[in-house]
């Protein structure tokens, strides 16, 4: 099993990307009526996607072992 799969930054990124895609697509396709005039599912899905991608990028960098 790769080290990556137990890197928490990667796992958070993965979950947020999955959720972001689901919400954004659902917002685009179904766009259920809501309190606001804008497409809240789509917009928030994109936000999640961006956050998720940031975590994925961060997980590409080695986490430094801190000096004591």
């Amino acid at each position: 099993m790769s080290k990556r799969m137990t890197d928490l930054r990667f796992l958070i990124g993965l979950l947020f990307v999955i959720y972001g895609v689901i919400l954004a697509v659902y917002g685009l396709v179904v766009n259920p009526p809501s309190f606001v005039t804008w497409n809240i599912n789509f917009v928030w899905g994109l936000v999640l996607l961006v956050v998720g991608v940031c975590f994925l990028i961060w997980s590409r960098f080695e986490e430094k072992d801190d000096e004591e």
Binding site: L23, Y26, V30, P32, V36, I40, W44
Partner: peptide, 11 residues
Amino acid sequence: ERYYPPGLLGL
């Protein structure tokens, strides 16, 4: 209930 449509509600 007031603000969240299906989808966001799940989140």
